[in-house]
């Protein structure tokens, strides 16, 4: 269980790539994980880059076929493949943006910030500025001194206690491709689950967070 919380090692990544094989499969998996996880996950920069290149290649192929008026049956098939890949990519990026919209302040204040791509960071910064301006001019600036912070309830709060955070305690469906073995769900070591390959589990996101980050378990 040593690599439980650490990042994904090269070996593991290679193994994962072997299992899933194509980038489309990998993208589908990244998309599914992102969709099911309550918090934002690491941005798959390399994968997105590759997917975009492949999509462009497909687009060119489709164009070529259409120009040559070659097989009318093949074009729609390529087109469909292309549409599906594009949907996955768009939806993946979209889900991430929507998570940023929802938890922008929380993300910017924690190390979740490093999980965003450069463009997403710019987007998040802008979102925060816009939201701050909006709340400030409609509510905060009209409240008495000491109560004007967006992050704190009042000047006497010691911590930022008005920041929406994702609910990490929620249950998620998950599945592992390989045996993880006995896995401890809580700090006390009272709840232990034996994670067997290809079995479906419903567990708290909080407790399997490390496995998701490490790519050892997939959310469904």
């Amino acid at each position: 269980m040593d690599s439980q919380l650490g990042g994904r090692s090269e070996e593991e990544e290679a193994a994962a790539a072997m299992e899933a094989q194509t980038d489309v499969d990998l993208l589908k998996r990244a998309w599914r994980n992102e969709k099911a996880a309550p918090e934002i996950l690491q941005f798959e920069a390399g994968l997105v880059q590759r997917a975009r290149e492949q999509i462009q290649l497909l687009e060119e192929t489709v164009e070529e076929f259409t120009e040559n008026r070659s097989d009318d049956l093949v074009v729609p098939l390529y087109q469909m493949d292309l549409d599906r890949a594009l949907f996955l990519l768009r939806s993946y990026l979209r889900i991430r943006l929507q998570k940023i919209e929802k938890y922008m302040v929380h993300i910017s204040k924690t190390n979740l910030w490093n999980r965003l791509s450069e463009q997403e960071q710019r987007f998040a910064k802008r979102c925060i500025d816009i939201m701050e301006k909006h709340l400030d001019q409609s509510v905060l600036s009209r409240l008495p001194y000491g109560y004007q912070s967006m992050l704190k309830q009042s000047i006497s709060s010691e911590e930022d206690d008005m920041v929406p955070e994702p609910q990490l305690n929620t249950y998620v469906f998950c599945k592992s491709k390989s045996d993880v073995g006995a896995f401890q769900l809580d700090d006390m070591g009272e709840e232990i689950v034996d994670l067997v390959a290809d079995d479906l589990y419903v567990l708290r996101y909080n407790s399997i967070k490390g496995l998701v980050d490490g790519g050892r378990i997939d959310l469904v």
């Binding site: 549409d83 599906r84 768009r90 990026l93 943006l97 997403e120 710019r122 816009i130």
Partner: peptide, 22 residues
């Protein structure tokens, strides 16, 4: 803000809201 993100990526994210069947 959404539009400038999309133009940085050169990808329109507001289409394709449901998985394509046909």
């Amino acid at each position: 803000a959404i539009e400038s993100y999309m133009s940085e990526l050169d990808l329109d994210l507001t289409v394709d809201m449901v998985p394509p069947k046909d």
